[in-house]
Structures are given as structure tokens and as C-alpha cells.
Design a binder for these strands. Structure first.
Length: 553
RNA sequence: GCGCUCAUAGCUCAACGGAUAGAGCACUUGACUACGGAUCAAGAGGUUGCAGGUUCGAAUCCUGCUGAGCGCACCA
């Protein structure tokens, strides 16, 4: 019996009580059934009686009594206790619980997928770092979290488009081009330019790739460095993202918004909605109508469009391309943008509480020799995505960055992670997976297997360790659904750590294979189903995080 | 000055308003002639920054305070 099925059973118990006239409430659309932390509280617990007590005008425990009586009649339910203020503690019979192992194995890679967000069209934008340098550690966090979130959302049935917004127009690119040009000509980079080895590398690639570029007039030369530098830098970013296991469906060019007239069209559309006004020679969007602390300029008095105007056009582009929910993942230094971005959606006539989500994530702090390493894209000693991968590898990097809530600043001690990578939780989880594969290898060696599905005896999975394991396996679909709904992929990582721990304990306490001259028993076979089910969930979960599930380490 | 975010064990971090706040690491003590010991068991470690409030129930929600990070352009 899965938690979802149990939840329906509880709901049915409420319905039955209502129909019998014993309970005067509206039947809740969804009943929460959860694994209690304390196993003395049964396999599952529900607080539904506490929640219905007030509307029913009855004491919580009286409501609980009504429901408990009906639940005890439910197939697969072994015991129902009423505890504390009115919790219902439900214990399943071993067979009903054990059946889950076969369910999981038979579902395979599909186990855990659900339809919590079925059909929802989501545009998920993340990283979007300026193409004026390599991706630095902050961007790496969004790459890990954003890509995992995309995978999680897809597992909940959402139709997700991942997108990288390339700021390929504007003065930063010009500064970048001037820096390349200066270095190529053996001159010092301008005061406000970009420095770092990569500037020299790209400059050299351009002078090598475009013979005679240095003989061109200065203006033409700059154009070459701008165009070629941008191309090379974007290619470099794409390469590092792909190597990190992160794929973007769309690389969206800011410049294209300006060149196609999309920015002007966007302003016209916002004007039609009545939120655009002229003042002091500039054209403004009245974002203060929707919670922004000041109105924003779209077109400056000198006729130039602002970056904000491009933001507006970009949002409308996402909308025009079918996005129902546009999710922006921004760094903490962009929190001031939340209100103005949401106001764009509202000014366009959209629901700013549904059609747009701006998620702010905190920074990653890097320590080396006990000192914080300051991150500056313009400084030479930046920590890039390639540095991180070199030090700790893609798996550990992705896992470490994705296992924490983006609300928390996280601190990564480079010395610790590089010198003692065994302490990394990802190894704990991956090791559990290799152990399960080891069991399968050993079974093959012994020439035994878990047997046919119809011979599986779920009631033999009856020890506390097996029960714990089965309970955890049953949670997986809900973990994914919650992670998707809350946009918090770190929940998957935490779940896997718990699952791995339960497996390690199961391993210590239950033999899966016969030893010595023993015969393979039905208990062994049932446990082999459980091991295979656990391996399936662990592998599925690691895939959602973009982390490999190794057979050997 | 105004605003946003954060504050949980020695460290790094969890905890859809639920029961005794949990993991990993580090520390102490144990466990390998069995499926991989990169493991497990036990122990120790907390006034969830402070003070109020709402609630049957608060780390979680509200108010105030303290501390930290960040942001407040006709820049991009």
C-alpha cells in the first residue's frame, strides 16, 4: 500500500462518517498522511482529526474515534491508535507494506514520477551570467540547483523549458571587447576592463583565427574583438555547462530583442495596458502600481532603451512562447529586481502571483586556508566552474551545491573538500548504491536471483529495518512532488541521504544472500526484491540531481 | 535613512504549522573468518539570536529588537 492509497483510505473514512451523519464537515480534498519520526507512532500518522475537530464542533479525539473505527476495517491496515491530542497512528500489515518493493521494481525508472504539475508550462531561467568571463562559483550553484529543479519539475509532469539569457548587448560587452583588444595589442587593459588569464587566451585565439586583425583600423578591430570574443566566450560557457551535465533548451540573446524590434513592441503593448507614461523626456513604466518602490525608465531622454526595457520584452517573449509560469533564479545581489520584474508581469495584464516567480538564492562562500576567497569576475583569481570541477569533480560539486536550500548561504572549505573528499555526503549516498550493485553481482556469482514476481512473498519483509526501508521508498513520489511544487530540489538530496542511511542499517542487520552451504530461502528472495527496489529509487533520485549512480567506486 | 534575505549542535547544513528539533563531519567507546568497513552500534553535544503575540500545537506565522549579507540609477 502506498501513502497515496492510504491517504485515499483515510479520506474514504471521513466520507463514510459524513454520510452516516456522524460528522458534519466538508470532506477535505486532500488528507495528509505522513511517516512519523517516532516509529512508536506506527507506520503512518494523520492529523486529519485535529483539523476537522473545529469545523465539526467536536473534540479531536472523538473525531479520531469515528475515523479509527472505519480505518480498522480497511484492507492492509493492521492497527489504528489514537494518540496525543488526536493523531491517528496507523500500522500496516507486513504484506501490504512489503508489496511496495515489487511495485517499485516493476515501475523502474518511472517510479517516483507523478503528475503533481501535469501539463504546466514552465520557463526556467538560471545562470544567465554575462558572457564576459567564465562561470564563477555563484553561477555554478544556480547551474546545479536550476538543472536539478528542471529535472524534478519534469518528473512531476511539468513541461519545462530551460533558458540562459545572454546579455550580449550593451556596455559590458564593449568593455570586454576593449579588454581583448588592449591585450592583443600588448597594452594594459582599461581601468574598468576585464582581467584574467582567459582574456589573454581569447585575445590570442582571435588574433590566431583572424589573421591581420591587428592591422585593421581601431574601430573595425574593436568590432572583430566584440563579435569573435562573444562567440568564443559563449562557446566556452556552453562547453563548461555541458561538462557539468547542464543543458539549456534555449540560449536567448538580449541583442535579438533590440534588433527584432521586440523591445519597442513590448513598450507598445505595455502602453496599451495603460501603464506607460512620459515624463522629463523619458518613457516610464508605472511599476509602483504593483508594489515596486519607484517607477522605471524604459526609454531614456536620450532615446536609448534601458536594460529594464529589454527585461520587459524578455518577459513578454517568454509569455508569447507559451510559458505559464516564468521562473527566474537570481543571486542575492539581484533581490532589488524582484518587485520590478513582477510588476512587468502585472503591467502586462498577467497574474504576478502565478505567472512569474522570482527566486533569490544566497551566495556561496569559499574558504581557503581559513580565509574567505573573495569572488570578483574582474579579478584574476576567480574561482571558475572548471576550477570547482577539477578540485572535487562534477558529482561532488553538483551534490554539495544542490543539497542545501538556496535560502542559505553555504560555505565550502576548499581545503576540506579537496583533501578529504570522502567526507562528502555524496560518497555516502553513492556508496550505498555500489553496495546494492555488489549484492546483485554476488547473487549472479552464486547463480541465484529474486525469482518471479508471482513468487514474491511481501509478508516476509517484516523486520524493523525492512519496514523502515519500505516506508522510505513509499515517500519518494511525494518527495519529488514537494520538491517540484516548492522549487526546492535539495529535498531530493536530503531524502537520498536518509534512504542511504536506512539501507546501510538494513545491510548490517539482514542477510540478503545465503552464506556457506545455506539454501536460498523465500526471505532471501523477498529481500532481493527490496534491495533492487532501493537501488532503483537511489538511482532515480541521483539522476534528478544530475549525479551518477556508480556500480563500483 | 529605506528595503530584501538570513540567524538552528563545535563545523557544514536539514526539518509541507505537528508528537522527544534531525543528519553528516569532528569527538568518546565498541563491532570485521558473511552480501564492498567509504559501513554499523552506543555516547556526548541545543533556552532554534533576544522579547512579546497568534494557535490545541511555533525553528516555522505576526510585531519589535540585535547581528550579518545584499540592494536602493534616465548603469548594465
Amino acid at each position: 500500500m502506498t501513502p497515496a492509497e492510504l491517504s485515499q483510505a483515510v479520506q474514504a473514512a471521513v466520507s463514510a462518517a459524513v454520510e452516516a451523519g456522524e460528522l458534519a464537515v466538508a470532506v477535505p480534498e486532500h488528507v495528509t498522511v505522513e511517516r512519523p519520526k517516532n516509529r512508536d507512532h506506527g507506520d503512518y500518522a494523520t492529523n486529519v482529526a485535529l483539523q476537522l475537530a473545529k469545523p465539526a464542533g467536536m473534540p479531536p479525539r472523538a473525531v479520531a474515534e469515528l475515523l479509527a473505527a472505519r480505518l480498522r476495517e480497511t484492507t492492509g491496515v493492521a492497527k489504528v491508535d489514537i494518540a496525543g491530542p488526536g493523531f491517528l497512528n496507523i500500522t500496516l500489515d507486513a504484506a501490504a507494506q512489503g508489496l511496495l518493493a515489487r511495485t517499485v521494481v516493476e515501475a523502474g525508472q518511472a517510479y517516483g514520477r507523478n503528475e503533481a504539475l501535469k501539463g504546466l508550462k514552465i520557463n526556467l531561467e538560471f545562470v544567465s551570467a554575462n558572457p564576459t568571463g567564465p562561470i564563477h562559483i555563484g553561477g555554478v550553484r544556480w547551474a546545479a540547483v536550476g538543472d536539478s529543479l528542471a529535472r524534478v519539475l519534469r518528473a512531476t509532469g511539468a513541461d519545462v523549458t530551460t533558458e540562459y539569457y545572454l546579455n550580449d548587448a550593451g556596455v559590458q560587452i564593449t568593455k570586454f571587447a576593449r579588454s581583448l583588444q588592449a591585450v592583443a595589442n600588448g597594452k594594459p587593459v582599461p581601468e574598468d576592463g576585464y582581467v584574467g588569464e582567459y582574456i589573454g587566451d581569447i585575445a590570442k585565439a582571435i588574433t590566431d583565427g583572424v589573421p591581420g586583425v591587428l592591422d585593421l583600423p581601431e574601430d573595425e578591430q574593436l568590432q572583430v574583438f566584440r563579435a569573435e570574443g562573444l562567440k568564443l566566450m559563449v562557446a566556452e560557457i556552453k562547453r563548461s555547462m555541458e561538462e557539468f551535465g547542464v543543458h539549456f533548451d534555449t540560449w536567448f540573446s538580449e541583442k535579438s530583442l533590440h534588433e527584432s524590434g521586440a523591445v519597442e513592441q513590448a513598450i507598445d503593448r505595455l502602453r496599451e495596458q495603460g501603464h506607460v507614461f512620459d515624463q522629463d523626456g523619458a518613457i516610464w513604466l508605472r511599476t509602483t502600481d504593483f508594489g515596486d518602490d519607484k517607477d522605471r525608465v524604459l526609454i531614456k531622454a536620450d532615446g536609448e532603451t534601458t536594460y529594464f526595457a529589454a527585461d520587459a520584452a524578455y518577459y513578454l517573449s517568454k509569455r508569447d512562447r507559451g510559458s505559464e509560469v516564468s521562473v527566474y533564479m537570481l543571486g542575492a545581489d539581484h533581490h532589488g529586481y524582484v518587485n520590478r520584474l513582477k510588476a512587468i508581469a502585472a503591467c502586462a495584464g498577467d497574474d504576478m502571483d502565478r505567472n512569474i516567480e522570482v527566486r533569490i538564492g544566497q551566495f556561496v562562500k569559499m574558504l581557503r586556508d581559513g580565509q574567505e576567497v573573495r569572488l570578483s569576475k574582474r579579478a584574476g583569481n576567480i574561482i571558475t566552474i572548471d576550477d570547482v570541477v577539477d578540485w572535487i569533480g562534477v558529482d561532488a560539486a553538483r551534490y554539495m551545491l544542490a543539497r542545501s536550500s538556496t535560502d542559505s548561504t553555504i560555505t565550502i572549505d576548499i581545503d576540506l573538500v579537496t583533501s578529504q573528499s570522502n567526507e562528502n555526503p555524496v560518497f555516502y549516498v553513492q556508496y550505498a548504491h555500489t553496495r546494492m550493485c555488489g549484492v546483485a553481482r554476488k547473487a549472479a556469482e552464486l547463480g541465484v536471483d529474486k525469482g518471479a514476481a508471482e513468487d514474491f512473498k511481501p509478508e516476509l519483509l517484516a523486520t524493523q529495518w525492512e519496514s523502515d526501508m519500505l516506508g522510505a521508498l513509499g515517500e519518494f513520489p511525494r518527495v519529488i512532488a514537494t520538491a517540484g511544487e516548492l522549487r526546492e530540489p535539495h529535498r531530493v538530496a536530503r531524502y537520498l541521504e536518509d534512504l542511504a542511511g536506512k539501507y546501510h542499517r538494513l545491510y548490517e542487520n539482514c542477510m540478503f544472500l545465503p552464506k556457506g552451504d545455506e539454501e536460498l530461502t523465500d526471505t532471501h528472495r523477498a529481500r532481493l526484491w527490496l534491495v533492487e527496489a532501493t537501488r532503483t529509487v537511489l538511482a532515480n533520485g541521483l539522476t534528478l540531481l544530475g549525479v551518477s549512480a556508480p556500480e563500483r567506486m
